[in-house]
Structures are given as C-alpha cells and as structure tokens.
Amino acid sequence: MDLYNKHIVLTGGTSGVGRQLVAQLARDNQLIVLGRDQTKLLALKNQHPTIITYQVDLENVKHVHQVAQSLAKDLPKVDVLINNAAVQFMPQIHEDTFVFATVEREINTNFTSVCALIHGLLPALGNSTPARIVNVNSALGLVPKTSSAVYCASKGALNIFSQSLRYQFENSAIRVQQAFLPLVDTDMTTGRGKNKMSAQSAATAIITGIEKSEKDIDIGAIRILRALLMFAPGVARRILKRS
C-alpha cells in the first residue's frame, strides 16, 4: 500500500512515535488524530494544519466506540487505522505504590479501545480496497518482563487478537498488521534502558512495513528477539524478565 492520498485514523499522535507518524504522514494524507489532551491536540494542529483532531479519552471505551461510529458516518472511507496509543505503569502488584485503578486504565487504553475503534470504524474500513488495521505492539507482547504485568498482558492480548482478526478478515479487503517496537526513546521510557531507538526511526519503520504489507513489522531488536524465541526461548525470557 502506497501511503499517499489516504484517509488515516491514528491514536496517540501527540507524543513519541505517534507524533513522528503525524510528521511523516500528514503532508500527503488526510490524517485524523484521536487524543485525550486538547491542549496537545491544538499544538499538533498548529504544527500540521491539514490534520483533523478529535478529543477522545481511550479509557472511556463507550465514548471511543461512539466517536468511531460517528467517524464512520462522516468519512467517505478509512484506508488505514493505526492503533498506536498506549500507557504503562511500572509498580508491581505487591508494592505499596501499585494503584488498582491503573489496571482498568491500561487494559482499556491498550486493548479494549482498539476493539472499540475497529468495530466502530468497520463500515468506513469496508469502503476502502484495500484497508489496513495496524496495531502497534511491543516486545512485551511476545515475552513479559517482571514489572508492568498488566501492560504485558494487554500487549499479549493485542497480539492474539490481531492474529485472530486476520482469520476473520481473510476473505475481505481488510488486512491486519502488527508493528512490534523495541525500546524506543519516548516519555514512557524515560530513565529506562540504553541504546534506545529514536521515535523518528521507529515511525519510519512502521510506515515502511505498512507500505510493504508486512503482517508482522519487526523493528530493530525485535528481529533478534524472534530468533531467540525460535532457537533459545529460555534466553529470550531471561533477557526480557529483567528488562
């Protein structure tokens, strides 16, 4: 798929990898960006005047579904839906700093809102031939680490969900892709890890993978992780456990 003159819906476009996706896609496409922070959305639109923004809190799944249904009626089609937004909380469940309310926040933002957007936008996705659903995932969707257990679970669910959706849409013009990111230099990863991939490079790799129609867009160190999971899964689990 050539990402030119397409209608693209994107979540998480105000920071990190999502912001870089906006920078690289906005000039040649009609970009609709969904985000929670209206101030950040306005700043993004000032920088990229051609984009359309909607204030949506992905934790509120009912509202997400309503907005998706409204968009499906208003737009002639949606060529690409990029589910990029995610949140991650670090405390372990037995620690005093763990807040139970964050469980629902992570699951809704990282997984349930994805289901809501896909279902709500189906009529518009069905008007495009072909259409793409691109779910941005993580190494932690393949192998968990010790902290952020709920985040790991939400990304694991996204991985299995995406695979199942491929079966459901295999006789249609809708194709489901996943982009698996290594550790990327964003606000979410501040203070963690070394040798991080830049958000700009990650966004470029996602776009390249979409254009090449790769089912699983394995970016950077994810390719090494895949090899380890095949030939030395125990090593892969030990590395990610302490990441």
Results as ranks from 00 to 15, higher is better:
residue 79 D to R: 04
residue 116 A to D: 12
residue 84 N to I: 01
residue 140 L to F: 14
residue 86 A to L: 02
residue 148 S to M: 10
residue 66 Q to V: 08
residue 95 E to D: 12
residue 149 A to L: 04
residue 76 P to S: 13
residue 99 V to T: 10
residue 96 D to K: 14
residue 72 A to D: 01
residue 93 I to N: 05
residue 139 A to Q: 11
residue 78 V to F: 00
residue 121 L to V: 04
residue 148 S to R: 03
residue 148 S to L: 07
residue 100 F to Q: 14
residue 79 D to H: 00
residue 148 S to V: 01
residue 123 P to I: 11
residue 123 P to F: 05
residue 117 L to S: 08
residue 107 I to S: 02
residue 84 N to G: 07
residue 107 I to P: 08
residue 67 V to G: 03
residue 90 M to W: 12
residue 135 N to Q: 05
residue 101 A to V: 10
residue 94 H to E: 15
residue 81 L to M: 07
residue 120 G to V: 13
residue 72 A to R: 03
residue 122 L to D: 01
residue 109 T to F: 02
residue 143 V to G: 05
residue 113 S to P: 10
residue 137 N to Y: 09
residue 109 T to C: 14
residue 75 L to V: 02
residue 152 C to S: 11
residue 71 L to C: 07
residue 75 L to N: 02
residue 130 P to C: 09
residue 105 R to Q: 15
residue 80 V to K: 00
residue 131 A to H: 09
residue 89 F to E: 13
residue 117 L to Q: 10
residue 139 A to R: 08
residue 73 K to M: 15
residue 106 E to W: 03
residue 127 N to V: 03
residue 102 T to C: 06
residue 112 T to V: 13
residue 65 H to W: 10
residue 124 A to H: 06
residue 86 A to D: 01
residue 98 F to Q: 05
residue 106 E to N: 09
residue 75 L to S: 08
residue 98 F to T: 04
residue 125 L to V: 03
residue 81 L to P: 10
residue 77 K to R: 13
residue 129 T to N: 15
residue 126 G to P: 05
residue 76 P to M: 14
residue 88 Q to P: 04
residue 116 A to T: 07
residue 81 L to E: 11
residue 88 Q to W: 02
residue 131 A to V: 09
residue 104 E to W: 02
